[in-house]
Structure formats: structure tokens, C-alpha cells
Amino acid sequence: MIRYTDEAIVEGLRLRKEKIIKYVYKEYFSMARHLIVNNSGTNQDAEDVFQDALVIVYKRIIDDELSLNSSFKTFFYSICRNIWLQRLGKMKDRSNDFVDFESITNLSEPTNDEINSIENKKQKLYQIHFLNLSEDCQKVLQLFLRKISLREISSIMGYKTEKYAKTRKFKCKEELKSRIINDPNYLKIYTDD
């Protein structure tokens, strides 16, 4: 497998290049899973933390707030570690119980806001449910949000009438809303709010 330099990884993530995302997954997911599974988490937790960590890294890159003072591996490990610590609520009182497997850097600590803000939690929930809709629904909703006219949406999607495009968009959004409000995490977020 090709090995990418840390700088190439950062540039690849900035461009959301799939091969770099897969590379980061192949190289670093097992490290994150090892950390989480050995600290009271599950595989699913590990996937969740990995995703959150990559989104945080990406946001930092595009906001020009990423400064790598260590290797990308150490940086990414530290992000995953801090997310998991915060999720466990152990940051202050139980961090001594935490088992580490890699060296860490203090410079990459994600802020509580990056991980736990209600806003971020909601966005993640909505986006994940959106990605679980059919491809057709995802496309209709995105075209609509891009302010493409119903006439053009009908043409692009191969619908016969604008009315159908409007109905389809409404039904897709309904489906999305229904999935969201029936997700137990939705209620949890609003209870925390």
C-alpha cells in the first residue's frame, strides 16, 4: 500500500479525497478501536468516535486551525482519546484509570464545544439520518436546498411533473423528520438542551 506523508494526509482530508479517508481508516482505525474497546467501549463506539474525530480534524483543517506539532498518528490518537474521555465523563476524576496505548499530544485536545455542543450533536444526527435515506431522496433534497427550480429538479430526476417533484421532496423530508424524531438520541439531545 502507498504510504502518505502527514502533509499529504492533511491535504487529502482538506479535499475530502476518498483514498485518503480510506487510508486514514486502514491505518488508524484499529488504533482507535484498541483504545476504546480496552476502555469500556464497543466496536460501534469506536466507529462513532473515529467518525467524530475525522470531522473535527477536517473542520480544523478548513478553518486553518490545524497545526501538527506531532505526527498525524499521535495527533489523531489524541483526538480520539479526548473524545472518548469526554464521552465517558472521565476527564477530571477518572483519567488515571484510563489505559493509553500510544503517546499523546496536548495540543490537539478538542474543545468540549467541538464534541458536545447541542448544535453539533443535532447536526450529526440529522446528517446521519439523511445519509440513510434512499439516494433518490438525498438527491432531491439537496437539489432543492441548492435552490434548483422544481422544473429543473423534475428534469434532472426524470420526474414527469413539477408537482410530483414537489410531492417527492415533501415526502422525503417527512421521511427524514420521522426517522429523526423516532431516534432515541433525538429525545436525549433535547432533554440535554
Partner: peptide, 24 residues
């Protein structure tokens, strides 16, 4: 309704999440 639409306008983050899911 408004919040959902706003979150769906983060096209880049959605694209990133989609690619992460694909990798997994």
C-alpha cells in the same frame, strides 16, 4: 424543519461522513 435544512447545507461535512461510512 429549519435546523434540518441548515444541517443539510453542510454539503462538505455530509460528503465527508458519506465517505467515512463507505470506508467503514
Amino acid at each position: 424543519d429549519l435546523e434540518i435544512e441548515e444541517s443539510l447545507k453542510q454539503y462538505d461535512i455530509i460528503d465527508l461522513r458519506r465517505k467515512i461510512f463507505r470506508a467503514i
